[in-house]
Simulated scan of single mutants.
Amino acid sequence: MADTLLFCNSHGADQPERATVPFIAAATAAVSGKRAVVVCTVEAVNLGVPGVADGIEEEGMPPLGDLVRQFTDAGGEIWLCSACALKRGITGEQELVPGASIVGAATIVEALAEGRAITLS
């Protein structure tokens, strides 16, 4: 996993600009052929639910829904923190956006230990 770039995001509709910036960078990485993962915690886990990102847009930036689709279409992965998701009623029993999965802390810690984390939000 040493060639994996991790983009940390803890924001969603609560702070559209901070939610968008990690996806701009991650989409750029994925389109460039890098393995890119957006690690969503706190409010950002809601972005794993279909339709949520479509309602988020910051003036002067691309719509978040478009970025999420561009990112996942290029092979990007979205990891939703299991504790944060559970707190918000996201269990994985419902449909998630393509490329999204719920992961535990051990997966995130392992990736952080072996990869490169980039915090932009």
Rank of each mutant, 00 (worst) to 15 (best):
A25D: 06
C84K: 06
N46K: 11
Q70W: 04
L80D: 05
L86N: 15
A83G: 06
P16D: 01
M61V: 02
T20H: 02
P62M: 09
N9F: 05
P98F: 06
D3V: 01
L96K: 09
T72G: 07
I78P: 09
R18C: 03
G76K: 00
L80I: 09
A27Q: 04
A30Q: 01
A26I: 07
E95Y: 12
E77Y: 05
G115Y: 11
V103R: 13
T91G: 14
G12T: 09
G55C: 05
L5T: 02
V45N: 07
G76Y: 07
V109W: 06
G89N: 13
S121E: 13
G92A: 12
A105Q: 12
V68Q: 08
P16R: 00
L67T: 05
G60A: 03
P62A: 15
R116W: 03
V103H: 10
E57C: 12
F7Y: 13
L96D: 03
L6W: 05
G60I: 08
R35V: 05
G33S: 05
L120H: 01
A106Y: 12
V103W: 03
G89M: 13
A29M: 00
G65S: 05
V21M: 11
V45C: 11
D14M: 00
I102R: 14
D14W: 06
M61N: 01
I78Y: 08
G115T: 05
S82I: 14
T91V: 10
K87F: 13
P98Y: 08
V38I: 10
G75Y: 05
F23I: 02
L86S: 15
Q15Y: 08
C8N: 15
A36N: 07
L47P: 02
S10Q: 12
A53N: 08
L112S: 12
V109T: 14
G104C: 11
H11L: 01
I56F: 00
G33K: 04
T91C: 07
S121M: 11
L64T: 00
L120D: 00
A25H: 13
M1P: 09
I118K: 00
L6K: 02
Q94S: 15
E59T: 06
R116E: 10
L5H: 00
A29G: 01
I108M: 14
I102N: 12
V37R: 01
V103L: 02
A19I: 03
A53Y: 04
A30G: 07
A113F: 08
L47D: 01
G92P: 13
G65W: 06
T41A: 12
A19E: 07
Q70I: 14
A74C: 09
Q94K: 14
G92V: 14
T20F: 05
A36V: 04
S121Y: 14
S82N: 10
M1V: 11
D54Y: 08
C40I: 03
E58V: 03
A19V: 05
G33D: 07
G48D: 09
R69S: 14
T4R: 13
G51N: 02
A106S: 15
P62Q: 10
E114H: 11
E59A: 13
C8W: 14
L86F: 15
L67P: 04
A105W: 10
A44L: 04
A19K: 07
G92K: 12
